[in-house]
């Protein structure tokens, strides 16, 4: 009987329902990635400030990306967020996918979205 209780307790602790949010790590990743891109595109920061902030976020992002890739709770949820995240590896796991192409995360991100220097410089504001 005791053994059954112990097994039931362990099972309940391991079950996905025991955690309030199974997408916790993925949401953290999305936040940190958004913060990284936001900092890199923030024109109010000077070079030194930007570099320091980017380095801090970059360090955290490396860990968080690895956490999400190892987190089984994320895939057990079968949510649209999780589906999208793994369908778009290049945009989700920015640090590791940019390392594959030996690019910085921002360059890699812009390349994935087809935001080239020429297209940005030739962009015009106005009505379609």
């Amino acid at each position: 009987m005791k053994i059954l209780l112990v097994i039931a307790t362990i099972a309940s602790l391991l079950s996905p329902q025991a955690f309030a949010n199974s997408l916790f790590s993925l949401e953290n990743l999305e936040r940190e990635r958004a913060a990284l891109l936001s900092v890199q595109l923030d024109s109010s920061l000077d070079l030194a400030q930007r570099q320091q902030k980017v380095q801090n976020i970059y360090r955290r992002l490396v860990d968080i990306e690895r956490m999400v890739l190892r987190d089984d709770r994320v895939t057990s949820s079968n949510s649209a967020l999780a589906q999208n995240a793994f369908d778009k590896y290049e945009l989700t796991f920015l640090v590791h996918s940019s390392a594959e192409k030996s690019q910085s995360p921002l360059s890699h991100w812009m390349s994935e979205l087809h935001l080239t220097t020429e297209s940005i410089l030739s962009a015009k504001a106005g009505h379609r």
Binding site: R66, R70, T75, S76, N78, A82, Q83, F93, H96, E100
Partner: peptide, 18 residues
Amino acid sequence: VYQLKQKQAQARERMQNV
């Protein structure tokens, strides 16, 4: 869910390489 887990496994493998 199985397909999502497969994608995660592939992504993990990709991460290991870099």
